[in-house]
Simulated scan of single mutants.
Amino acid sequence: MKSVDAHAGAPVGTDLGALARWLGERGEQVTGPLTARRIGLGQSNLTYRVDDVDGQCWVVRRPPLGNLLPTAHDVGREHRILAALAGTQVPVPAVVGLCDDDGVHHLVMEHVDGIVLDGLDVAEALPTPVRAGLGPSLTRTLAAIHAVDLEKTGLHDLASHRPYAERQLKRWSRQWDQSRTRDLPALDRLTELLRRRAPERQSLVLVHGDLHVRNVICSPDTGTVRAALDWELSTLGDPMADLGTLLAYWPEPGEVPAERPALGVTALDGFARRDELVQSYAGSSGRDIGPELAFWHVLAVWKVAVIGEGVLRRALDEPRNAAEGGPPSTAYIDQTVDHAWELAAHYGL
């Protein structure tokens, strides 16, 4: 494909005419010219809904624009994982294929109908039983991911089998060093605390790495997860890491950031509370929940801060990378670090 400027939110650097021809070569029925618009609040890989004139639609994901950190934003790796999970109990969109646009991979997959809770208006419109159903469905989805047979799916060599806590601390510390926009001593001290408290590996499973309410499509009638999205952080690791991530992205009343209220949908009445999520996951997975969950919860909040700083850096370097609402501010990132410290104190770390 030749790169062209796009309009009305279409993928910058993608020729939609060439994409239509590629889809046709893959056996997809495409009528007329394609149009595209950016979807979701994700600020990492860029995600677009692509439609033809007959209303058929697909989802396309591509890396952000500008200079990227090594090993980050690998949609080819996402393609491998989604293709491997086809036919398992994990709800994922069907993959059309991996399209190469002048050396930039574009992951093309089916569009799954449903809702994404990426705004208060969406969550507030849901009846209480639907709100109540989402949390348990998310924990069942996590349990299904962690039950994936690594040998049968060919994912046994997806990543290192070394201790996951050590790998995570090394990777995200490096990400912080390479993307920071300023010094933040409170985060540096938290990093050292986490290094001292890192638990030994309990088990090795497929982990999603970023499963939360904005990364799933769910039924508007029941809250059941229809598709788990955004697999770019998926790897092999400890299942408690995924549970910790779910808790980190699940604010309760009084924890909603004033600057980014859309992140606080789970604080609304009717949604499960974090202790209920833990119990639900234990029941769905059959796993014992040990004290190491405290470490993973705090580490996940630490990661949210590191990721936020990376998003801010990419938006400063290339404003077209920013999603609706813009990148997080330094004040929000600082508050996230403060919240991680509060959790560490609560857990006695």
Rank of each mutant, 00 (worst) to 15 (best):
H208W: 07
R197M: 10
L246W: 01
L247Q: 05
W231D: 08
E255N: 12
W250G: 02
H212W: 14
T222G: 02
R195E: 14
L243R: 03
A228E: 02
S219D: 15
V225D: 00
V256G: 10
H212C: 02
R201Q: 14
L204W: 04
T235G: 05
V205N: 03
V205L: 04
L246H: 01
V265M: 08
P251G: 10
R260P: 06
A267R: 13
E259K: 12
G223C: 09
L268W: 08
L268K: 10
T266W: 00
E259Y: 15
I217P: 03
R260G: 06
E200P: 11
A262F: 15
D230W: 04
R197K: 13
L194P: 12
T266K: 02
S234H: 06
S203A: 13
A248W: 02
G244I: 05
A262D: 13
R226G: 11
T191C: 04
V225L: 00
V225N: 00
L206G: 03
P261W: 11
A198V: 11
L190Y: 07
V216I: 14
L206R: 03
P261I: 14
L206I: 08
A241E: 09
L246G: 04
V207S: 03
R196F: 05
L229R: 05
D242K: 02
P220H: 10
A248Y: 04
D230V: 04
M240G: 06
T222S: 15
E200S: 14
V225R: 00
L190M: 12
C218I: 01
E255A: 13
R201N: 10
A258Q: 14
V225K: 00
W231K: 08
L246R: 00
E232S: 07
G254S: 11
E252H: 08
D221T: 12
A258E: 13
P253M: 14
T245G: 11
G209T: 07
T222M: 03
R196Y: 03
L247P: 02
A262W: 15
R260S: 15
W250F: 02
D230L: 06
G264A: 13
D242I: 02
E259D: 15
V207E: 04
